[in-house]
Computed example of a mutant assay.
Amino acid sequence: MTPVAAGPLESWVVSVDLWGTLITYGDREAEAAWRIREFETVLAEFGHDLPDDQVRDAILAVRADTQRRQRTTGEQPPVRGQVEQMLTVMGLSPGTRLVDTLLVPHTHAVLRACPDLIPGAHSALWALRQAGARLVLTSNTLATPASVSRLILDDHDLTTVFDATVFSSDVGLAKPRREMFAAVATAAGTDLNRVVHVGNSLTTDIHGALNAGCRAVLFNPRGKPCPTGVRDITSLDQMPTAVLATCS
């Protein structure tokens, strides 16, 4: 019997970012508006009738600060801590029952944004699998923990494509920290130098991956300047070819 030839990516792991790479961010204004409305409703039920601007400003300020810290330092603030900080900024005491109640709209608001699949995602991922690569989804989370992110993966039929998933809310640290990419290598049972990471952020995806000892491909539909030696793609149907070239 003639042995089946190994695919060209048989010994490689392809790590792929989620937000902005495989799915859109959706309607962020709708997400923010729903979170703010739900917070106001819950706060009123608990006897806190605050001005709309006070609630909105606290939520948006904490979210912006959380995102900045994550992207620059790889810090992964727990969702509970985010809600507690929002209440503190509002001048309220973050009691256990109130925080527990607010966690639901805080972590599920992203579903109101209706994130959509970026064209070419499925075909590119399956082409990589057919080339022999193992696939790992590698995603930072902010207000959306791994449990809710997995609902989104299921909605877009992405769950079965991946051999493993690595979420920053599970690791306790976020990209660009080396530990996130080390978790990818561990999940796939390989070394960091056999990992190619594909993502849309120069800071968290590209520099993070390169500094960890991985290779990288930039998903770059807007044509941002790309670091020397890093391949970039403007559409996902170019991903398999770019990954193959990066590994050669």
Rank of each mutant, 00 (worst) to 15 (best):
N200M: 07
L173I: 13
R150E: 12
F46V: 09
V198M: 07
I118Q: 10
L102E: 06
L103V: 04
T190S: 07
S11K: 14
F162V: 03
R194S: 13
R150N: 09
L218F: 12
L87D: 02
T107K: 11
G81P: 00
Q67D: 14
Q76V: 04
L173S: 15
V13W: 01
E38G: 06
D65G: 12
R129Q: 11
V14A: 00
H106M: 10
L87W: 05
T24E: 07
V148C: 08
G26Q: 09
V136P: 01
I206R: 04
R97C: 08
L9V: 05
D52S: 15
C114S: 15
D191K: 11
A109F: 02
F46S: 06
L135R: 05
F162T: 09
G132H: 00
V4D: 13
A109S: 14
L151Y: 06
V196D: 03
C226S: 10
L236S: 04
A127N: 10
R68K: 14
E179Y: 04
G74N: 00
A44F: 10
M1V: 14
V198I: 11
D163N: 10
L158H: 05
T203R: 14
R68T: 13
T186R: 14
Q130A: 15
Q70D: 06
R80W: 10
T144P: 00
V195I: 12
D57V: 05
P145I: 06
S248W: 13
T101E: 15
V243W: 04
V171C: 02
L173G: 13
T190H: 02
I233E: 00
T96G: 07
V184T: 12
Q70I: 12
T204C: 11
A182V: 14
L87R: 03
R69C: 00
D53K: 12
C226Y: 09
L103H: 08
M180V: 04
P227S: 08
A64C: 10
T141G: 06
V198E: 08
V104K: 10
P78M: 03
H197K: 00
S169N: 04
I152Q: 09
A146E: 12
G91H: 06
T138F: 01
S139D: 11
V62P: 00
D49P: 01
W34Q: 15
A33L: 12
V166D: 01
A44M: 02
V196P: 05
A143L: 12
P225C: 05
L60H: 07
G213K: 03
Q76R: 07
V161D: 06
V230K: 04
D49M: 10
